[in-house]
Nucleic acid binder design. Sequence first.
DNA 1: CGTCTCCAGGTTTTT
DNA 2: CCTGGAGACG
Length: 676
Amino acid sequence: MSFGENLKSELNPEQYKAVTTTDGAILIIAGAGSGKTRVITYRIAHMLEKGIPQSQILALTFTNKAAKEMSDRIKELTGRKLQNLTVSTFHAFGVRILRQDIDKLGWRPNFSIYDETDRSALIKETGRELRFTPDALDVYAIGNLFSDIKTGRRNWNGDNDAYRELYEGYQEGLKLYNAVDFDDLIVLPIRLFKEHPEVLQSYKDRYKYIMVDEFQDTSHQQYEMMHLLADKNVAVVGDDDQSIYSWRGADYQNIVNFEKDFPNVTEIRLEQNYRSTETILAAANGVISHNTNRKDKSLWSGNGNGRPIEIYMPENEAAEADFIAESILGICAEEKRKYDEFGVLMRANTQSRAIEESFLENNIPYTISGGMSFFERKEIKDVISYLRVIANHDDDINLLRIINTPRRGIGRSTIEALNKVAADLSVSLWEAMQAIISAPEEQCPVTEATKANIEAFTAIIENNKNMLSGKGLSKKVHALVDEINYFDYLIAEYPKSEKAARFKYMNIESLIKSMEMWENNPEHEDTSLYAYLNRITLLSRDDLDDGEEDKGKVNVMTVHASKGLEFPVVFIAGAEEGLMPHMRALQDGGDVAVEEERRLFYVAVTRAQNRLIISSCLHRRRQQATVECEPSRFLDEIPENLVKYHEPSKELGAEDAHEMLQNMLKNFSRPRVPKL
DNA sequence: CGTCTCCAGGTTTTT
DNA sequence: CCTGGAGACG
């Protein structure tokens, strides 16, 4: 049976219209659980069946996970190989554009992509050169400021003007090191399109059908990128009630812009919810109706009432965690459910600690997304830094990370000398090293011994340039790790714990293993070092742990990470004032911020299919002190008749605490093997 | 001049 | 636990 024979019977009338309206500008308002993914994938499959070439279709998403899921499902539906269909995240699409034409903007195509850690390092580095006093440098806040400036969310004014010079230095640094930051991946393609209309035209000639998922989370830049590319056939799918990324520049007002910018927009609303019980949906509607300034919609479901929403008020976060663990065990037995049918949602990653403790104690398998990701681990970053420098010698930030790791006698003063040469000649550190190596002895600013150390380092990089071409990347990386004796370095670094050193070495082996799997995957045609580096910088936390490994495990995650997912049973932990809504958000956001926090709570509630269990602690440890907590204001917004309160149960004895902690530490930060 | 040791602090959400 | 910085030591 081929796709499309029975479209009408497989879809409701609105869905059918959304799938079959392929021409013109279309705005699809898709409420939570209304079968959005189904509509998008059917829509593309339908276009392909109609004979539209794959190459003319561009689908933009926010996460790699969403992109992958989308193409997998289209493949399944159509039974075709997808060779020319572009399903990509905005950022990955930006990278593709830049690799092609960034030379027109003055970068070279082997540019590095800087993540937040690299950005902070560059800010610190630039600040040092410009002699900013260290305590005036809150690199975290300044990084955010720079991001806001670059994307037009903030302007220079009396308050932040002091950082203007630093910003310019930062930008010069990026260019000198042949690097771009995350914002550049959107901002630079726009610049390219505007300054070089012929480049834009080539993309417009190719892509005739554009689709954007999670449209409520587009930033102004992303919108502009889409607007520049889009001719007339453009479909955007979103839900203003689920806009939860405004702190990253998302603005659901883009929905309004869309209606203005594209004439004759066809608006389609998907309001039938296939996911949740009436009770859960009524609770969600009750909460979200407190927001002003939203597109009015009425979600309905034909799924029956189901159980009331359960609210429990445990003494503290340990009791909360035990309650969740025990409830899971109980429900598993009672309703014959498997562990992977549960989702435990929280506002902040720090909440996971208590929950993990209790799950370990109760032998409940779980996967956790969030916290430190695999690629943020020091040992992984070290290896990757080598690869980046091999790919782009001028990448000073990554070069500085590894120049003396493992120790090779290049310390502070040598680096200072290198910096001086680099500044005098206006070149990167790599060039400065070349200059020093070839300088005659009497003009050399460093001793012969130091010079030898520098040469030893550059030799490693030169010797591994064979990674840039040919096959067998993972083998070559393995050889590099051996060459630099990284394992010995780890042993020396962690003298107290050989176990820690071994653990870290195992992480590196996992990295190499995943690299091997990646290069052996026949779907990946380009297995060059460049392709690999592209791939991993844009991976996000939740792209890592998918697949078989997580089968049969309880899903613990932040509410942000849960968007787009659903679980038969959902726990929301920490529904307290100060956490949900979060006090940081309240401090610097006012009413607008409360509305976003409310949407976040709405997202959490609408993840649940059958049962929703919410807990709100009476006390919670915050940093060193235990503070008293009040239930979240959002709980009061759930219609009372839908709710059942639990009696508080007795607190668990404290004598197990020690053992619990030991258990936890033993299993703390297990390696998560990335799947590429 | 580089390395080792001791101490402080840990950021809401993340492409 | 884990990282980065300051200051002492070889």
